[in-house]
């Protein structure tokens, strides 16, 4: 799933851009972008293990919690601020996205779609919070405190005047499908460009 995001983000990002990757994990997206798009910038991750892996990937890594360290970055100092598959772990998604828009010229966000039909059936038939290979945690131990559906996300964007400029939905075959009414049912994850 993550790799799919990476390919698309690599396509979108202009060469020589400045990138801030929030929740960058082991830094492989930034490494890819630095290599393929000659970008520069920083990854931010709160995990010390991920920080070590990021150093090994020779990216600039800031080991900090993205919920309260956005003051590290000044207004419009990056071309892109990316939040790849980390929206669901953020304390306050709306205020973080506002911060991302303050820091970057453009924001890219990808997240798993809880409206995917399998998640819906899981809850419907089992009566339990979905546990899947992509979101493998029980409700009581999950770091994913802000899961949403594609529709939820769009509603939030509209009510906060976040302007969606492009959206791509990944389905189970790993194919990027363009916007359609069934997306919220068939898409496993989504990726949005916001201004």
């Amino acid at each position: 799933m993550a790799r799919k995001d990476f390919d698309l983000i690599t396509e979108w990002v202009e060469p020589d851009s400045r990138i801030l990757d929030l929740g960058c994990g082991d830094g492989s997206l930034l490494k890819l972008l630095n290599k393929k798009r000659n970008t520069s910038g920083y990854g931010v991750d709160t995990s010390i293990d991920k920080t070590i892996k990021s150093l090994d990937n020779t990216i600039n890594i800031i080991n900090a919690d993205i919920n309260d360290h956005m003051d590290f970055f000044k207004d419009k100092s990056f071309d892109y601020v990316i939040l790849a598959q980390s929206l669901q772990v953020v304390d306050n998604p709306v205020s973080l996205i506002k911060e991302m828009l303050r820091i970057g010229n453009e924001v890219i966000i990808s997240f798993p779609n809880m409206g995917y039909w399998r998640s819906r059936l899981y809850l419907f038939f089992r009566g339990e919070m979905p546990v899947t290979s992509e979101l493998p945690f029980s409700w009581h131990s999950t770091p994913n405190i802000h899961l949403c559906t594609i529709r939820d996300f769009k509603k939030m964007c509209i009510s906060n005047n976040f302007q969606i400029t492009e959206e791509v939905i990944n389905n189970v075959n790993g194919k990027n499908v363009s916007a359609s009414l069934l997306n919220n049912l068939t898409g496993t994850s989504a990726i949005f460009r916001i201004k």
Binding site: R18, N60, N63
Partner: peptide
């Protein structure tokens, strides 16, 4: 330490930072 990091980021320096428990 983060004051150092912040200043270096403002100047677009290649900087990494780790806070050790």
């Amino acid at each position: 330490s983060e004051e150092i990091v912040k200043t270096l980021i403002k100047l677009n320096k290649d900087v990494s930072y780790a806070c050790i428990k």
